[in-house]
């Protein structure tokens, strides 16, 4: 490791007594004392949430109100604090969505563990999980702080879908357009 000797600035006598510096500091703080507060009084005043804010992770539905998550568990895998826990399941025959084959039976996000990193959103191949503008989570018990699947969908709502990937697959399967 290289040692770089630095010349210290020699202090003047006034500086060595600290007094002028302390006085100028006192001036600064006194000026500040007379100015209005900078802070926001939280429960009454709420911050404006900018777009792209990483709030509580939620599950979203497509514009037809259908579940987008296919429980691939990539978010569970990528989650650094292991906050996500998914129980995968099969989509039952006759539900109209059996061509998706797989969907979450249970989807729990432990908000006591979540660090709001957004990796789950980034990794999701189905664009089913989004960190939205909800930022305030409270609860009296640990159990309350775990968002279950229904709560996640309630928080998430519906987001526009540019692809409708599974609809295209269904159409392809019904019309057999390849052959």
């Amino acid at each position: 490791m290289a040692v770089i000797p630095l010349e210290r600035k020699t202090l003047s006598l006034a500086e060595r007594t600290y007094v002028p510096q302390i006085l100028s500091g006192l001036k600064t703080t006194f000026k500040r004392l007379l100015k209005p507060a900078e802070t926001m009084e939280y429960p009454e005043q709420r911050p404006a949430i900018p777009p792209g804010y990483r709030g509580v992770p939620t599950l979203v539905r497509d514009p037809h109100g259908r579940e987008k998550c296919v429980s691939c568990q990539l978010c569970e895998f990528v989650c650094p604090p292991k906050a996500i826990r998914i129980t995968p399941g099969e989509v039952p025959e006759g539900s109209g969505r059996e061509h998706v084959e797989k969907g979450p039976q249970a989807f729990d996000i432990d908000m006591l563990r979540c660090i709001y990193c957004g990796l789950c959103q980034e990794v999701c191949p189905e664009e089913a999980i989004f960190l939205q503008n909800q930022y305030s989570m409270t609860g009296y018990t640990r159990e309350e702080m775990v968002n279950h699947k229904d709560r996640l969908y309630e928080l998430g709502g519906t987001l526009p879908d540019a692809h409708f990937k599974w609809d295209k697959k269904k159409v392809a399967a019904e019309h057999g357009n390849a052959h």
Binding site: Q73, E76, F77, P88, E101
Partner: peptide, 9 residues
């Protein structure tokens, strides 16, 4: 084993 668990876990 179908849809039970991802193998990487």
């Amino acid at each position: 084993f179908r849809f039970k668990m991802r193998v990487w876990f």
